[in-house]
Amino acid sequence: MKTAHGYSSGITETPVSACEAIQRAAREAMAAAAGAEHAHRRASLSEHRCELRVQITAFADLFCQWPTLERLDAVTLAFDAPSVEHVVRTLNCLSAMSFMLR
């Protein structure tokens, strides 16, 4: 198992440590799964949530410098906005930021 620290860097763990981390994460994920869907539905009632999957982890690294973006996995981001207009404006800004890596 490796822990990413950016687009091209990371730390490799020992097999024993990796197994323990995977088991711990699986237990935590199962415990959180029941409440997560309910919380997501409740949040969706008051605002708009956008989930975005990017092409490469470098885009996720760059975009998550924006304080309101949440990183869900290596290439999936999410953010909440008060309106659809704000969702579109945020996506336009992320698109403009992407030129830095092209």
Score class of each variant (00 low, 15 high):
K2S: 14
A4S: 13
S8P: 02
G10C: 04
I11C: 14
I11F: 12
T12S: 07
T12C: 03
E13M: 15
V16H: 15
S17K: 11
S17A: 15
A18V: 09
E20P: 09
R24L: 13
A26W: 12
R27F: 10
R27M: 14
E28S: 09
A29N: 11
M30W: 08
A33N: 06
A33W: 14
G35L: 11
A36S: 10
E37W: 02
R42F: 10
A43F: 04
A43H: 07
L45K: 08
S46W: 13
S46G: 10
E47Y: 03
H48F: 04
H48S: 09
R49G: 06
R53G: 09
V54K: 00
V54D: 05
Q55E: 08
I56S: 13
A58Y: 02
F59M: 06
F59S: 02
Q65N: 09
W66C: 03
W66K: 05
E70I: 14
R71V: 05
L72N: 12
L72T: 07
V75C: 04
T76M: 04
L77H: 06
L77M: 08
A78E: 07
F79W: 08
D80I: 03
A81L: 06
S83P: 06
V84N: 01
V87Y: 00
V87S: 00
V87A: 00
N92C: 15
N92R: 13
C93S: 13
L94P: 03
S95C: 10
R102C: 03
